[in-house]
Structure formats: structure tokens, C-alpha cells
Design a protein around this nucleic acid. Sequence first.
DNA 1: CTTGACCTTGACACCAGTGTCAGGCGCTAG
DNA 2: CTAGCGCCTGACACTGGTGTCAAGGTCAAG
Lengths: 128, 128
Amino acid sequence: MNIGELARRTGSSARSIRHYDKAGLLASHRRDNGYRDFSDEAVPQVMQVARMIRLGFSLEEITTFPPCMLRQVTNAVCPDALAAHRERLAEVDRQLFDLARLRERLLTVLGANEPHLPPTERAPHEPS
Amino acid sequence: MNIGELARRTGSSARSIRHYDKAGLLASHRRDNGYRDFSDEAVPQVMQVARMIRLGFSLEEITTFPPCMLRQVTNAVCPDALAAHRERLAEVDRQLFDLARLRERLLTVLGANEPHLPPTERAPHEPS
DNA sequence: CTTGACCTTGACACCAGTGTCAGGCGCTAG
DNA sequence: CTAGCGCCTGACACTGGTGTCAAGGTCAAG
């Protein structure tokens, strides 16, 4: 299929798909006219890459992942990629820790000037 | 004092101080030779700006803050800036929420493939 | 043939504070 | 005079996925 249809099927933009393709993540081939020709398996591949990006992995990191990451469509992750996920989790934990401390600092400033601070509540949000 | 001494006293780089100065946050004047001449009050000013940046405010935001933010050296924040801090806190809460959800997703992936996941622990970190 | 939709590559913009370099001037000690 | 340090401005790089534009090729419908 052409890149346009792949974009429609995956919800990613053609621009992004070209980016993933250039990174060697999609295993496409070219027609005689130069057009990219994607097989059906490119659909889950693109969605997988998009999912990894949403999890906070960079394209460069994804490039280093073993090929099974992009071949498998199941929920299972091939063993070789688990380490990357663990590292990513540790990074997220560090960010959570830093952010929590930042929150404490802000509460300190607010609390020192505005004693009526609300209880520690969470603001719902819709990122991705 | 010259910018070099101010940099030494505050721990910020001369490059950053020029940046803050160009943003109009430091109230410096120039000598006949073109050099910036900072008074002693610039020291807490720079540190205050650096503190705000560490709290996650952008220079543009800081620029909109009332002048009292940079004049006062006390721990107290002038009332007009409290709103900005509350908004910043809400933003931090949103980030915490998103990050927590991201963490859940990572744990789901890891948990589905590696049932022996460690308890929810925090990794100590030193940002600033 | 013409129109229009779709494809190609390449390049710039974005965010925002900071590092760093280039080219040049000021000032002081020898 | 000169060596050396400090200061000046201006500009580019960096991060990194994505939007967007330019200039041009492909191809099917009319």
C-alpha cells in the first residue's frame, strides 16, 4: 500500500511514517516509480512504534531494540527488550521523584503565603 | 560589580546572567566602557531567577511576574505571583498524573512478561 | 492534454535555556 | 608596547518528533 493509506490506517501522519521508515523501523521497499510500498504488517509496526514513543522511548532507542519488537503483534514483549523497559521505568520513577519534590517546594512557597492549601489532589488530564 | 564577579557570587554562568539581563530581569546599568555594572542586590535577583527556573517557570513567565518578585529577598512571595505558583502546581500535578499512568503502562508490559516485579520503590536522584 | 490527488526529497521551524565560538574592545601589569 | 584576562555582541548548536513548505515526479480521470 502507499504511504497515504498506511497513514489513514494507523492514524500516524505520513510525515511521521517517513521518519520511522528512514530510521529503518518499517522494512518497506520501493516501487519502480520510487514510491514506498508497505505490506499489511507495516500497520502494526507503525502502531507499535507510535506506542513506544508514547511510552517515552526515543526513535534512537527503538532502533536499538531487537527486531522481534516490530515483528510481533502480540502484547508480549520479546525478552531482549525487557531491560529497556526496566530502564525506562527507572527513569520514570526518577522523574516522579523529582516532580514530587518540586511539588513539595511549590507547596512550601504557597503554604508559607497562603495557609489554606487544598489536600493533595490530582488533576485529571488527557495526554495521549 | 562586573558580570564575572556576579557569576562567581551566584553560581550562575555569565552567559545565563546576560540572558536574564536581556530579558530585563536584573535592572543593571552600563559603565562608560559598555560593561554591565551590577549592584549588590543583583545577587539575590539572579538567585531568585535561577530558583524560579528550577521550579519550572520559563523566563517569559518570570518576566510577567510583578517586580516585587525580584525586589524582595524574603521567603515570602508577593501576592500577585501566587496565582502563577498555583497554576504551576496544577501543571506539576498534571505531569505527575500522566507520569503515574505511564508508569502503570510500563508495569503492565513488564508484569505481563515478568511476573516477579519489585515493589513500588523510588530511585533516589539529584537534579538541582 | 489538463487537472488534481498523491508521492518524492530536502530543508526550516518549534521549544528554551545554556554552551561555545568568533571577532573585537577595555584595562592592567610587565 | 604587549601579553593576558575580562568584557562586549551576535550567532550557531543542542534536543527530537512533528508540521509545513518548496519544487518536482507519477498516474489516473476527464
